[in-house]
Design a protein around this nucleic acid. Sequence first.
DNA 1: GAAAAGACGGACCGATCGGTCCGGTTGTGC
DNA 2: GCACAACCGGACCGATCGGTCCGTCTTTTC
Lengths: 213, 213
Amino acid sequence: MNVSNAYPLRADAQRNLERILVAAREAFAEGGLDVGVEEIARRAGVGKATFFRRFPTKEALVHAVYEGFVIEVEESVDRALQEDDEPLAALRAFLRHSMTTQAGNKAFFEAVASRFVAPVELTDRVMAAIARVMAPAEAAGALREGVEAGDISTATKMLGAAIRPMDGLLLPEAAWDRYLDVVICGLSADQAPLPGVAADPCAMVREVSAKSV
Amino acid sequence: MNVSNAYPLRADAQRNLERILVAAREAFAEGGLDVGVEEIARRAGVGKATFFRRFPTKEALVHAVYEGFVIEVEESVDRALQEDDEPLAALRAFLRHSMTTQAGNKAFFEAVASRFVAPVELTDRVMAAIARVMAPAEAAGALREGVEAGDISTATKMLGAAIRPMDGLLLPEAAWDRYLDVVICGLSADQAPLPGVAADPCAMVREVSAKSV
DNA sequence: GAAAAGACGGACCGATCGGTCCGGTTGTGC
DNA sequence: GCACAACCGGACCGATCGGTCCGTCTTTTC
């Protein structure tokens, strides 16, 4: 985000900026998006004022970290597309990876759970990545009629909810596949078609984001 | 909870207590569990101190309201059990009703999403109700092998997550059945059995609750 | 109808959070 | 090596939240 800005930062400032980003990723991963700015600055070995000199608001930092998540998603799709033994393999690998990431990174989980309004540009990138990862299954006719990108996005939310039965508690990995199985199975072909799509969640997200600018 | 206490409250105190409970239910339904105590007291036409005279802490109020939710769940199961056209009907009706309630009541949604640690006694009641509502389907062999009460509880969480694509946004009702279909379908028989249960979420919930007492 | 038990609410407290200010420090270009 | 701009961080601010205090008012009881 600000890492390579218009005119170059002084060396120490650049170093501190990077430290802040690293510290924020760590702190958010452990404690979720509610971790305070002071704690992040402390971890970065920096004063609170220094933080606010680089990021106008805490929200800006959250967006910067969120962009990292989007990149992770895109890379996850690239990796998932490698395995093409069977039509649904890539989609399954993607969803499974999403569970792992949400489990190990509380902020990622909260981001998926939409604890904040993400910039449109970034949600668009996520949707594009999802479209890529579901393409093989779609082409092979392995997907239930009516399943679309927004549904896969929703599936990641549902799976995230599944592996966190209560606040602060995380289901052991061995139990995750139960839910992944249920969802994959519900998304597979050879079922009655899904009811018609009455609304496009992505469009609504776009609308809300635009309104909040 | 405190409504009918050990020794009788004075008439005005009893009236105010009821007003507080009603106001809390409304306020929580609209704004979620983060609504402040002051706002609730204001809605009840009462001072903040009066609130804290009846409830030792805000958490106590949340638990009282949560007990109301548990009763709603139990009633919902009673109603769902009426419709027995086909084996899965009751379960489906129950999950559908849970979606409606979560949609119309932000606090209920957050309670399902486990935004707080509920008392063991109440989570036990929820689990018992779920066991009742899934019994017909189970008896008819309509459930996939390995599906148990904890999975239905998780299903309500997943469906709650599905209908709220982002903070403050609610999917229109017409789109809900898509996800209900996916989940019901994944829970139905005639699929490969679910992977073995490595952990019992309910037991873990019980453990965590005990620790926090 | 008066006294005492109980309830009332607004003012107050301490902790926390996002965000700002300012006097001292440090990297950088000449 | 010097001067200046850029940078630094701790102290500070205002808002908010859960929770308490205390002087006043209401209900109950005899």
